[in-house]
Write a protein that binds this DNA or RNA. Structure first.
Lengths: 154, 154
DNA sequence: CAAAATTAAATTGTGTACAATTCAATTTTC
DNA sequence: GAAAATTGAATTGTACACAATTTAATTTTG
């Protein structure tokens, strides 16, 4: 087994990106068993969180909130519709827009989902402060990246 | 547009998981234009980082390092093979195992990839210290989750 | 040593992600 | 006010993720 000397800065364990990628997938994996009884995948759960906050958003508005485009959201929302949790219908004011509304089942699912965050917090083994500071650091990072996507002049 | 009062702990912006998920996708998106000239996707780049560190790993070993299973790696590695960057062949000692080896092209791609981390670091707008501490915090989180996947007794 | 158990990849099926294109509906501009 | 530009979803195509199953090879056991 030949070992090739790879420079420090190319080592996997040095990469912030991999730490992020691995942590994100690990956390998602931890949600899976909690969400399965609700019949939701993790991205579907995020979409429901948004709708529970504000019902009747359009696909575009939902996409802005979750930072996902219609290519991802359209099939996801169709699955939520097939599961009887939301309805999708064109806006009368502007027929290009599709409005997503919770059904009664979709709204009442919030009760069951309500136990999820505390359950996760416990598994994460972080204090409230630790969770908040990590979360805020990540949000700052995300915001930073979206402000300077390539640093090019127009 | 009806607003439903959703409890604090169910608000999207409160979720550490969403901050992680969004940050991870943002960072991946920032890599895309840097990796495109190399002909690599982001997960392919991670696999190449591992192989540049240690050539001749099996699919299983690569999977342990990246925390990905054969369902993800097999097609990814076939694409790297199709791109002429790696070879895949059964081990003689144990024919169940498939050994992944860099081709000359795969090895020499490291020179071009060498510029990527510095370029990313600049875009992330974080000091070396900030990057390291965030990375280590995420690694600790990931390790924590993998140690206690469900807190059940055997 | 042969049957049973285990292991490593591959395969299958579902569900994201995201670029690129298409299509229809609305705005803008001339 | 009609042609051109823009916008919002949907669609298409590629590439992950990951659960579950299958297949083949190796170990373990009786």
């Amino acid at each position: 087994m030949k070992r090739l000397p790879s420079p420090q800065h190319l080592l996997l364990d040095q990469q912030l990106c991999f730490a992020l990628y691995a942590a994100s997938r690990s956390v998602t994996g931890l949600y899976r068993p909690l969400l399965e009884p609700l019949g939701l995948t993790y991205p579907q759960y995020l979409a429901m969180l948004v709708l529970w906050e504000q019902d009747g958003l359009t696909v575009r508005e939902l996409g802005q909130r979750l930072q996902l485009d219609s290519g991802t959201l359209t099939p996801l929302l169709k699955r939520l519709q097939a599961a009887g949790l939301v309805t999708r219908q064109r806006r009368l004011e502007d027929e290009r827009e599709v409005e997503i509304r919770l059904t009664d089942a979709g709204l009442s699912l919030r009760e069951q989902a309500s136990a999820v965050p505390a359950c996760m917090a416990q598994r994460l083994q972080l204090s409230i402060d630790q969770m908040q500071s990590l979360r805020d650091e990540l949000k700052r990072l995300t915001r930073q990246l979206q402000l300077s996507p390539s640093e090019d002049s127009p």
